[in-house]
Design a protein around this nucleic acid. Structure first.
Lengths: 407, 407
DNA sequence: GAATACTTTTTTAAATTTTTAAAAAGTCTT
DNA sequence: AAGACTTTTTAAAAATTTAAAAAAGTATTC
């Protein structure tokens, strides 16, 4: 089992790289017929059938019987062999990392574990230790893991594999270092971008050509799907929705500028406003807590605390102001509320709509639909796994190279 | 000559449609070697050489001798036959239409004529009369014109071929009507989008993957090049930069909303501010005019009138505020100042930079370059012609169909 | 309820396209 | 001026697509 890749002649495997489009297709659709794969990959049916046959022989793909037909020959149904490979998804936010292992049917095959630490204190070696600990605990053979999807906040340059914001963990060449230490290919991506991928492939953004996916968390991230593909800008830094200069409130933002959207609309701003309100002696159930945080405000808002609802509504209205700009510029087919904050998506929706109605040309708004994510807190983990699938060919190749280097 | 298309068997021509990528490539590069065409179209060299041979035989392409080589066999240089076809470009703004005929080397082969009228009073029949008048005056055989590129301001849905803003001239099916009346295929596009195409293909935006092209005119239009291709949103309505809600000035915009960028930054706003200043008795050479307009203010600003410069600077600063948002969202490689207003591009640049410095995260600005168009007032006309080239295959097909219908 | 018409998928064979390799044509250095 | 190196073009092989036929169903009709 361990020597699987070694026994197989290298040049025998090479067609697999070019077949990664078919693998992606099956991963995102769970099951598919040859016609469906043909339509999705843009390859001809005879070619697709040949590829599927090869992949079946190689153990990546299996036939699941026949699908029904509206009249005509029943098509064979193909799917990936769920346990042929696994993916480790590592989803970080400012204060923790969540890990889970995903199979080739996009199913979580382990519990999700959370490791807590402030992100800017994390070292590569500490992260490696967490990953090793997790893998040993879950008793998944390292050789079956095709790649690690590492997703985190920050300005991430995916060409250079660098996180400019948190360079201690993902600075220059550190991704390469981690990859080498755990002997599994590692793919790095921004958290909001990962969430956008998840929503596009498995969420409410599926099959919409142009989508703005909001990551409602500590800040307000934005992942953009334009013309059915991820848009990350000229240097991978697009989507800094949080820091668009929108207010003349004089409030200093963490980015060093004044009046960013974040200063009025993030959960950090909401928490600050809550503290101010309590200090002023407002009637609110928040006053019963010794110390408050965003989770508490959200919880109380759901329970119906008027002040908490007002706080979130205000933030949401400001987000809506920003979205009005986005709609004018991008004319998107949909805007998706995702990320942690989407758990209370309906609380956000009304004030956002209000702001849009006030600030948008009606002719434009009619084309943009609002949707609330149903992936909940799993979005980033799913996106991280999809990131590895997107790079399946590359992952396989790197795995081969590393094994070749050992022999 | 007249029956050229009829003599040729229809199915003989069909490969030409699929060769339109090669034609586009030659049109945009003026001259190109087989290797260049191969790289640009993504087709293999043997295939490109075959296609070029066919096109040469059909009279579309000619060989221009050999290019120099940095070491190695000299490549053959191909170009389009300049007079094999012509394009009529019709560029409208709010008050006039400019027309010119362009050959297959992207050269203007006639003078540019201007027809004046308020755009919302123009009828399709009037436009048809202007076009016919122009064509007869220029003595260009109608059969050699492969298509008309019609570009104008307004919310244009390129799927439906409808201008929602000025529907009297380009409402439902009116484009089809014009096309039928003049027996030449017509292609409709937004003015700012046309300018963006022109800048990408022939201007300072060439070879940059992600570019924001500003159309500085009566309003402030925006055409976006994302991942090397035009982005027009889910319904062709993207780029409404003029109407992003940015101010709390209470000023009513033509769009019906308050506080649009246009209310502070357009030439209309500049003119209003100028009148106000004159009324207040400020010292300015503008006071010498019985009635002022944007052209006069620009002229006086160039001459050095302090008040005029201040007016334009203020507008430019506001444009810069909007651009700061754009940079955060899109992380563009370049921002191009184009359109009529770019004639005084340097006047705009300093205050825009000022605003960017104040409102943008420095890490982002370093990746975005500012450029001033060198296409001047020709940008929209060039873009209109390019629009026809982009649809060359379609144009040829429609021409064929219309001739077929006659026989 | 069997025969026929219609759909849809799969297979087969032919045509096209692309890739790979080799040959031709040229430049540059020593 | 010869040989090493580059680049384009041609030729042959490999891969992919297109078109057509065959296979396997479903629905309808008499």
């Amino acid at each position: 089992m361990y020597y699987y890749y070694l026994i197989m002649p290298v040049n025998k495997l090479s067609p697999l790289f070019s077949n990664s489009e078919t693998i992606k297709c099956l991963y995102y659709n769970k099951v598919a017929t040859s016609t469906e794969v043909s339509n999705l990959t843009g390859k001809s049916i005879p070619h697709v059938i040949k590829v599927l046959g090869e992949l079946t022989k190689a153990g990546y793909v299996t036939v699941n019987g026949y699908a029904s037909s509206s009249g005509g020959r029943k098509p064979l149904v193909y799917s990936l062999v769920a346990d042929s490979h696994y993916i480790l998804s590592v989803a970080m936010d400012q204060f923790s990392a969540q890990m889970v292992i995903v199979d080739m049917n996009n199913a979580f095959v382990t519990d999700t574990e959370r490791y807590e630490f402030p992100i800017n204190e994390l070292t590569p070696d500490a992260l490696i230790a967490y990953i090793n600990e997790f893998l040993e605990k879950k008793e998944i053979a390292r050789e079956t893991i095709i790649g690690v999807g590492l997703t985190m906040p920050g300005f991430i340059d995916t060409e250079q594999n660098v996180n400019y914001t948190y360079s201690s963990i993902a600075g220059e060449s550190l991704v390469g270092y981690i990859q080498q230490q755990i002997s599994i290919p590692v793919f790095l991506e921004n958290d909001s971008t990962a969430i956008a991928i998840a929503e596009q492939k498995f969420g409410v953004a599926a099959h919409i050509k142009n989508v703005m996916v909001l990551n409602l968390g500590w800040g307000i991230g934005l992942g953009m799907i334009l013309n059915d593909q991820l848009f990350t800008g000229n240097n991978g830094l697009a989507g800094e929705f949080s820091h668009i200069p929108l207010f003349k409130n004089g409030k200093l933002c963490t980015c060093g500028k004044h009046g960013c959207l974040e200063t009025e609309a993030s959960l950090i701003a909401v928490t600050a406003n809550a503290r101010q309100g309590i200090k002023e002696g407002l009637t609110t159930s928040l006053a019963n807590y010794p110390e408050i945080n965003a989770d508490i405000i959200i919880a109380e808002a759901i329970k119906g605390d008027v002040f908490s609802v007002k706080l979130i509504s205000e933030a949401a209205y400001h987000v809506g102001q920003g979205l009005a700009i986005l709609i004018h510029l991008m004319n998107p087919g949909a805007i998706v509320l995702s990320g942690k904050g989407s758990m209370v998506g309906k609380l956000w929706l009304a004030p956002i709509q209000q702001a849009i109605n006030e600030h948008c040309i009606p002719r434009l708004t009619q084309f943009t639909e609002f949707k609330i994510s149903d992936l909940n807190t799993r979005a980033q983990l799913i996106g991280g796994a999809a990131l590895v699938v997107e790079n399946f060919g590359k992952a396989l190749e790197e795995k081969l190279n590393s094994i070749e280097a050992v022999t």
